[in-house]
């Protein structure tokens, strides 16, 4: 809270004081009410509800029964597809999350000393894929499964292969391609945040460091840049991680759902399958809640880790 009140509250109990402040600044509650009401409705309540509904066998037709942990037990012991989805989601997140975070930072760091004009053009080039909507569908043509596909065409031409590779149906290729495409699209909000954060560091700090005997970029990065960037790094990591766990739409668009042998089947797909197609609301709520827990845990862990940078 940014402001100290001038009211003498020496004689008031803590509760009286809070009540006094609540009355005095009731306008604050009025101002946040419209947003917060909707936010509770569409974000907070759904999360809490999915925890509760996850303990039932609700299916929209029959009266739900409270089944305690049955859904969770089934998920982990009896649903092989869920384990596959969990594994794939983790693989995506572990590969794409940190890689996109590091890539965003490295690019932002490298372009930091370019002239403002060049920097804004380069920023656009790296940022464009993440905002180009459905532009990733072009990969369907670049990696098309016949000789008119860009990659297959040239591989055939040069004689590396005899017949076209079925990129989005071959289990060997689906996952690596989806990861690569996810990375291509991943220089988004965190990237912009890093670009801005680096610009915001006072140049005199670098000069002071140079006087103090820092001799190369790496030392400068470690002793000056990173500690200054901590808040942006934390924000960027949250953006990257949340993004990498929710991945699923791109897979559906390119490799179909389900993909061959479910190699790129993620938790998002599993939620859709049970919540959308089969209407097993209770079961899919349990899956949703697991995804929620994973995201929150991963984010909190990384935030804790990054807040140690430079300490």
């Amino acid at each position: 809270m940014s402001k100290k009140s001038k009211v003498d509250h020496g004689k008031m109990t803590k509760r009286q004081w809070t009540w006094h402040m609540m009355k005095r600044y009731k306008i604050g509650y009025i101002m946040i009410a419209p947003f917060m009401l909707l936010f509770f409705f569409f974000t907070i309540i759904p999360v809490i509800a999915s925890l509760l509904v996850g303990f039932t066998d609700y299916n929209m037709l029959e009266v739900p029964n409270w089944v305690w942990f049955d859904n969770y037990i089934t998920l982990f012991l009896d649903d092989e597809l869920f384990i596959t989805a969990l594994q794939n989601t983790m693989i995506f997140a572990v590969l794409v999350g940190p890689a996109s975070f590091i890539l965003s930072f490295v690019v932002a760091w490298f372009i930091n000393e370019l002239s403002p004009r060049t920097r804004s053009i380069v920023t656009l080039i790296f940022y464009a894929p993440s905002i180009s909507g459905g532009a990733y569908t072009i990969f369907g043509y670049i990696f098309a499964s016949d000789s008119y596909g860009l990659v297959n065409g040239w591989l055939l031409k040069f004689g590396f292969i005899d017949s076209p590779i079925l990129f989005f149906t071959d289990v060997k290729w689906i996952m690596p391609l989806c990861v690569a495409i996810a990375l291509w699209m991943s220089l988004g909000t965190s990237f912009l945040s890093f670009v801005a954060g680096l610009q915001g560091i006072d140049r005199s700090q670098f000069e002071a460091a140079a006087v103090d005997g820092i001799t190369n970029r790496w030392q400068e990065l470690w002793y000056v840049t990173l500690p200054n960037m901590k808040p942006q790094l934390i924000f960027g990591s949250v953006m990257s991680i949340t993004n990498s766990f929710g991945f699923g739409g791109v897979v559906t668009a390119l490799a179909g759902n389900p993909s061959t042998d479910y190699v790129a089947y993620t938790i998002s797909h599993h939620i859709e399958e049970y919540g959308g197609a089969r209407m097993e609301i209770g079961y899919s709520s349990a899956i949703s809640f697991i995804l929620f827990l994973i995201m929150i845990t991963a984010n909190s862990f990384i935030v804790k880790l990054l807040s140690k940078v430079g300490e």
Binding site: F39, I45, P46, T242, F245, G248, S288, F292
Partner: peptide, 21 residues
Amino acid sequence: QLIQKSLMFSSSVGGIIVFII
């Protein structure tokens, strides 16, 4: 804090309940 925490999960998590709402 609530707003900040909400950045840590994607909205798809509550999708089914939002559907019902």
